[in-house]
Each structure stands twice: as C-alpha cells, then as structure tokens.
Lab assay of single mutants.
Amino acid sequence: KLPPGWEKRMFRSNGTVYYFNHITNASQFERPSG
C-alpha cells in the first residue's frame, strides 16, 4: 500500500508507470516508501 496521497499512474504515450501525490502535487518514478 502506498503512503497517504500517493497513487500509481501511467503515461498513455509510452506506458511508463509513475507515482503522483495529489496532496503535494509531487510526482516520481520511484515507488514512495512509507
């Protein structure tokens, strides 16, 4: 389970998975720990 605010997303163009935090508007490719 991801830390609060984080969700898994995917770029439609190339299928790359990334993680987005809707609380802080942060995004990263590494899976957030917590």
Rank of each mutant, 00 (worst) to 15 (best):
K1F: 11
K1Q: 14
K1I: 12
K1A: 15
K1N: 14
K1M: 10
K1V: 13
K1E: 15
K1S: 15
K1G: 11
L2G: 05
L2A: 01
L2W: 03
L2V: 07
L2D: 15
L2M: 06
L2T: 03
L2R: 03
L2K: 15
L2Q: 02
P3G: 04
P3I: 01
P3Y: 02
P3R: 01
P3H: 00
P3E: 03
P3N: 00
P3A: 06
P3F: 01
P3K: 01
P3T: 01
P4R: 08
P4L: 08
P4T: 07
P4I: 09
P4H: 08
P4G: 05
P4E: 09
G5Y: 05
G5E: 06
G5W: 04
G5H: 06
G5A: 03
W6K: 01
W6H: 02
W6G: 00
W6N: 01
W6M: 01
W6S: 02
W6Q: 01
W6V: 04
W6A: 01
W6P: 00
E7M: 07
E7Q: 10
E7K: 08
E7P: 02
E7A: 08
E7N: 04
E7G: 09
E7L: 09
K8Q: 12
K8Y: 08
K8G: 04
K8I: 14
K8L: 13
K8D: 03
K8A: 11
K8P: 03
K8H: 04
K8W: 05
R9F: 08
R9Q: 03
R9A: 02
R9E: 02
R9Y: 07
R9M: 09
R9D: 00
R9K: 08
R9V: 06
R9G: 00
M10D: 00
M10F: 14
M10S: 08
M10L: 11
M10A: 08
M10P: 03
M10G: 04
M10R: 13
M10V: 13
M10I: 15
M10N: 06
F11P: 00
F11Y: 14
F11A: 07
F11N: 15
F11E: 09
F11T: 09
F11S: 13
F11G: 07
F11M: 13
F11V: 11
F11Q: 09
R12K: 13
R12W: 10
R12S: 13
R12Q: 11
R12E: 13
R12V: 12
R12Y: 12
R12A: 14
R12I: 13
S13M: 05
S13N: 11
S13R: 10
S13T: 13
S13Y: 09
S13H: 12
S13I: 11
N14T: 14
N14E: 08
N14W: 07
N14L: 09
N14K: 10
N14Q: 09
N14V: 03
N14R: 10
N14P: 04
G15Q: 06
G15P: 01
G15R: 06
G15V: 00
G15W: 05
G15F: 13
G15T: 06
G15H: 11
G15E: 07
G15I: 04
G15S: 07
G15K: 05
G15L: 07
T16P: 09
T16A: 14
T16W: 12
T16E: 12
T16G: 09
T16F: 09
T16M: 14
V17L: 03
V17I: 13
V17Y: 12
V17F: 13
V17R: 04
V17A: 09
V17P: 09
V17E: 09
Y18G: 03
Y18N: 00
Y18D: 04
Y18T: 00
Y18Q: 03
Y18W: 06
Y18H: 01
Y18F: 08
Y19A: 00
Y19F: 07
Y19L: 00
Y19M: 01
Y19D: 01
Y19H: 06
Y19Q: 01
Y19I: 00
F20R: 00
F20V: 08
F20D: 01
F20T: 04
F20G: 00
F20A: 04
F20Q: 02
F20H: 09
F20K: 01
F20M: 01
F20N: 00
N21R: 03
N21D: 04
N21M: 07
N21K: 00
N21Q: 04
N21W: 08
N21V: 06
N21A: 02
H22S: 13
H22M: 13
H22V: 15
H22L: 15
H22P: 08
H22Q: 11
H22D: 05
H22R: 14
I23E: 12
I23N: 07
I23R: 05
I23P: 03
I23G: 03
I23M: 10
I23K: 07
T24F: 06
T24L: 04
T24M: 01
T24G: 04
T24E: 02
T24Y: 04
T24D: 07
T24K: 03
T24I: 04
T24P: 04
T24Q: 05
N25L: 14
N25I: 05
N25G: 15
N25E: 08
N25F: 10
N25D: 06
N25Q: 13
N25P: 02
N25H: 15
N25M: 13
A26P: 02
A26T: 13
A26V: 15
A26N: 08
A26H: 11
A26M: 14
A26S: 11
A26I: 15
A26W: 07
A26Y: 04
A26Q: 15
S27N: 03
S27E: 15
S27P: 00
S27R: 15
S27H: 12
S27T: 14
S27F: 15
S27Q: 08
Q28W: 06
Q28R: 04
Q28D: 00
Q28Y: 03
Q28S: 07
Q28M: 06
Q28K: 04
F29S: 06
F29W: 11
F29R: 10
F29V: 08
F29G: 02
F29P: 05
F29Y: 11
F29T: 08
E30A: 05
E30R: 05
E30P: 06
E30Q: 10
E30F: 05
E30N: 07
E30L: 08
E30Y: 05
E30D: 11
E30I: 06
R31E: 09
R31F: 14
R31K: 08
R31A: 08
R31G: 03
R31D: 10
R31L: 09
R31M: 09
R31Q: 06
R31T: 07
P32I: 03
P32K: 02
P32W: 02
P32Q: 03
P32V: 01
P32D: 01
P32H: 02
P32T: 01
P32F: 04
P32N: 01
S33N: 12
S33V: 13
S33T: 13
S33Y: 14
S33E: 11
S33A: 09
S33K: 10
S33M: 13
S33D: 12
G34C: 06
G34T: 12
G34D: 12
G34P: 11
G34E: 13
G34L: 12
G34F: 14
G34N: 12
